Structures are given as structure tokens and as C-alpha cells.
Amino acid sequence: MSMVINHNLMAQNASRNLSTAYGNLSTSVRRLSSGLRVGTAADDAAGMAIRELMRANIASMHQGVRNANDAISLLQTADGALSVIDEKLIRMKELAEQAATGTYTSDQRLLIDSEYQAMASEITRIANSTDFNGIQLLNGNLSSSTHDGSGVVSRGKMKIHFGTANDSAEDYYYIQIGTATASALGVGNQADATFGGFAISTQSAAQQALVAIDKAIVSKDNIRAALGVLQNRLENTITNLQIQAENLQAAESRISDVDVSNEMTEFVRQQILTQSAVAMLSQANSLPRMAMQLLGG
């Protein structure tokens, strides 16, 4: 290479290498400080696109777990209210048994019947007042076999959504809760008069009420059994969602996160190259003085 004074090609070459090494060092510092291998689209465009979809699904799964937990809380609220209704039905069966015997007068049976009707009214009150987040649970609002979510207020059975899309086979299912008012169970004076559980004011009516109350208990138990099945299903759904989210997080980490040991090795390499380039640039900048020495003779 000829010695010239118009250009310092060695310094330009050293400057270019310094710029490259310093840029790589800056990238390495950013990765080590952020913990991300893919910090910008330039790092890995395809990887970033895949990562963002994974992050969206992971966030959706975590919300799905919360949705399923809320549904479990709803079911537990309904089951707790039904357990109280169960106590009322047991007391009504006890009163019917008492009124069914012949050792009581008609006036005494009327007194027994007044408590019987009070128990039936309490069952209806519990069914109408049991709610979760303002949603009535036992008054029949969720007993429909259909669902309509097109309006501001959803109607019919409740849809519990926990998946990342909208596939009925994978992403949601329905909660349907039967009506638990006294009239729906067939007991008390709000029920159909032809039902045996209408009243226990006579010995014959009390005897018929015993059978009607058994049917009411079975109906109530069917509702509770359905709630228990749904709760177990939701708990399994939560476990599955947590496993999916965990595995998807691991996959996202392999794409997005930096391998600290490898990146630290690269950082040291770029640091050495940067220091070398700085030293050589300093030497290259001093080379034109050699030409000046020749000119000065």
C-alpha cells in the first residue's frame, strides 16, 4: 500500500471495524440488561411475530384460569344456598310427619302448617335472593337450555369462556342451574294445589306431603349434583390451562429470552474487538505524521 496524505485508508478501515464492534457490543449490553434476545424486530422478525402471538395466548390463558375460578365461586355460592334449602326441606318433612299422625287436632295442624308455609316461603326467598355479582342463580334465570349472548344482558344458561379462541369443543361450556323456589320444588302454598306438598293442614294432606317433599329433596339434590359435576370439571379445566400456559411460556422463553452464558461470551468478545479497534484507530491516525516526516526531510 502506498503512503498517501489525501486519505487515511487504515484509519477508515479501523473506524469501520470500531463502529461494527461497538454496535455489536451495544446490542450485547441491551440483551444482557433486558434479558431478551429479541428486543426489536430487527433481532428476529419471525421470532418476534411468533412470540407476540404466544404472549397473547399466555395472557388469555391466565385470564381463562381467573374466569374458571370465578365460575367455581359462583357454583359454590349456589351450592351453599341449596344446602340451606336442604335444611328447610328436612324441617318440612319433619313437620309433615308430625301432622300426619292422628294425635293432633285440626287447630294444632294449622299451627304446624303455618310453620310449614313459613319454611316454604323461606326457600323461595333464598332462591330469589341468591346471586353472584348481581346474577341470580336459583330463581330460574339460568335454567334455560339455550343461551343468547347477543344483547347487553345475556339470557338463558351461562357461558363460561376460558379458552383462547371461540371453539365450543375447546374454549367454553355452559352452566345451567335449575330453579329452586318452593313452587318449582312442588312444596308450599305457592305450588300447584294438585301437588301433594301444597299444605299439611289435614292429616291426609300431610301424608301426601311426605311423598312430595321426598320428590322436592330429590330435585334439589339433582341440582346440587349438577353443580358438583361442573365444579370438578372446572377444576380440571384450570389444571389443564395452567399446564398449557406453563408450556407455552417455556416455548416463548426459548424464542425471546437471552442465554446469559452465551451472550456474556459474545459481550467479552465484542468488548475485546472494540478495545482493539480503538487502539488500532489511534495508531492509524498517527500514520500521516510519517509522511510529514519524509516531506520535512
Rank of each mutant, 00 (worst) to 15 (best):
A11M: 13
Y22A: 13
M292Y: 10
V268E: 00
Y173S: 06
V187N: 07
E52R: 08
R254F: 00
M10I: 05
L9K: 10
A182H: 04
N285R: 06
N240Q: 06
A226Q: 05
R109K: 14
R37Q: 15
M158K: 07
I217C: 02
L32Y: 04
N189Q: 07
I243Y: 03
A191I: 10
L210P: 05
A206L: 05
Q293I: 12
I112T: 13
Q249R: 07
E122D: 12
I217L: 02
A71W: 11
V278Q: 08
L74N: 09
D192P: 07
M92F: 08
Q231P: 00
N262Y: 00
I85H: 09
S282E: 10
I112C: 07
Q63E: 15
M292G: 04
L18S: 12
N141S: 10
D167G: 00
N13A: 13
E115A: 06
M48T: 10
L18K: 09
G178V: 05
A206D: 09
S19P: 05
F132T: 13
Q283D: 01
V84T: 15
Q293M: 15
Q63H: 12
R16I: 14
G64C: 11
M92Q: 09
M48C: 11
T239R: 00
Q98H: 01
E122K: 03
L294G: 06
S114M: 05
N222D: 05
M48S: 09
T124P: 00
G178W: 07
N13S: 15
A251W: 00
M3Q: 09
S106W: 02
I135N: 07
V38N: 12
D113C: 06
K157C: 05
A251M: 02
G178I: 06
N236F: 01
T237Y: 02
A81R: 04
S145T: 13
V260I: 14
N67G: 12
T77N: 11
M3A: 12
S201T: 14
S26K: 07
S286Q: 13
E235G: 09
D131Q: 15
V84E: 15
L74W: 03
Q242F: 00
L82M: 15
I50C: 08
F162H: 08
L9Y: 11
I177R: 02
A277Y: 02
S19D: 15
A42H: 06
Q231I: 01
Q203I: 06
D113N: 15
N247K: 09
L32S: 05
L248K: 01
A68W: 10
N17C: 05
A277L: 01
R91M: 07
L18F: 11
L110R: 04
T40Y: 09
T146G: 04
L95V: 12
L95E: 08
Q271N: 01
S183K: 03
V152M: 08
N240S: 05
S143W: 03
L36G: 04
I5Q: 12
L75V: 14
N24W: 07
T27H: 08
S114D: 14
V260R: 00
L82P: 08
G35Q: 13
T265L: 00
V268G: 00
V211Q: 13
R91P: 07
S2T: 08
T202W: 10
E122Y: 03
Q108D: 11
F198S: 03
M10C: 06
V4A: 09
S144D: 14
S15T: 15
S121G: 14
A96K: 01
T40E: 12
E52M: 12
